[in-house]
Nucleic acid binder design. Structure first.
Lengths: 188, 188
DNA sequence: TTATATCATACGACACGTTGTCGGATATTA
DNA sequence: TAATATCCGACAACGTGTCGTATGATATAA
């Protein structure tokens, strides 16, 4: 007898959704398996048929998300004139903001930002080196600088009550990339 | 009868140290009060005389650290020619790297980076506005950009096995601040 | 100086909730 | 009908937070 994907997939999705609803409200270590299964309508033991513990749910979710993140930019990157894929990054974040805001937030996963960077660095590096950049410590640190700044700003942008338009944001980020922060800070 | 600070302060410090040793090794929600008190040499109940729960230990520690962080730059900022206190930031991080590396790390506190930013933004903003900057959305976002980038790079720097010298780092950060990331990424 | 009352500090024990793992009940498919 | 997938109830072990209590130090009075 083979497994019935129609049933198990639905059950797993129900558990995933119940977990995410709770994860949006409180930190992961305050989430009990009992809460998840009650919300999803299952016995607590059923949880263990699909996940090893509460962290396992989050890890699997992060894996799927990282995989999704890597699909989008690849297309846009090739037909990109900018060396640093700024627009691709912004549109990627917008597309998955529902999850990113929480995972990068104050009650999120402190390791997740590192996972994003690790998954994007090789792609961006490849493009940059193909365009003539040297693969040295300066490239490494500049990439870390740029990704940290972008993620920080985008996270800030998504958490704002009345955020500026996406066009204004991209315009500002482009200026900062091209001219640095000092010109803006000194007062132009 | 008054409290005996000599005794309680020592006990509290012992508990704090035991907690930190454990926090360096594993995520906070895997740390039990029993572990902390056993390591410090007390009964589990004694813990509750000083802290409400495990998170309370971390919160108090973060408060002390934030307070310390705010002392250092204030002196250096006044005698600073740069509008953005880059050197002050770097020296501040170096001075407290023991704690910052962990708190900003993969098993750290996802809210701590926000706490640092929140505590530094008013100081830096004050200086910048006094130097003629306009207090608008561009300043806000540029500050978020700069702080995210600096914290990201410094965290990366401290976690490296063979990091470049502090002089090289400051030189690179200065260039990135003055000229932006593009010049570096394109390949100069 | 000595005896005693008082309080700070640390401890042991209790009830409760969560965890992970059994074996078993029910339903579905061959 | 037989076999297996899916889900469930029960159990032991562990961590949590809160009692009441023992011990030792300090202040006050005799």
């Amino acid at each position: 007898m083979k497994k019935n994907p129609a049933i198990t997939a639905q059950t797993k999705q129900n558990l995933n959704q119940a977990f995410w609803e709770l994860y949006c409200m409180k930190r992961i270590d305050k989430i009990t398996i009992k809460e998840i299964t009650m919300r999803a309508g299952y016995n607590r033991s059923t949880f263990y048929e699909y996940f090893s513990d509460v962290y396992d749910v989050l890890e699997q979710l992060e894996e799927r998300l990282i995989a999704n993140l890597q699909e989008l930019p690849v297309q846009q990157l090739s037909s990109q004139k900018d060396p640093f894929p700024l627009e691709a990054l912004v549109s990627m974040f917008s597309h998955h903001s529902k999850y990113l805001v929480v995972l990068l937030g104050d009650q999120g996963d402190p390791a997740f930002q590192g996972k994003i960077k690790a998954s994007m660095k090789p792609m961006i590096k490849e493009i940059l080196i193909a365009q003539g950049a040297r693969d040295d410590f300066e490239l490494e640190y500049t990439l870390e600088y740029a990704l940290s700044a972008m993620i920080g700003v985008l996270r800030y942008w998504f958490s704002q009550e009345e955020p500026p338009s996406i066009e204004k944001l991209v315009e500002l980020l482009t200026e900062l990339s091209d001219e640095g922060i000092m010109k803006k800070l000194i007062g132009m």
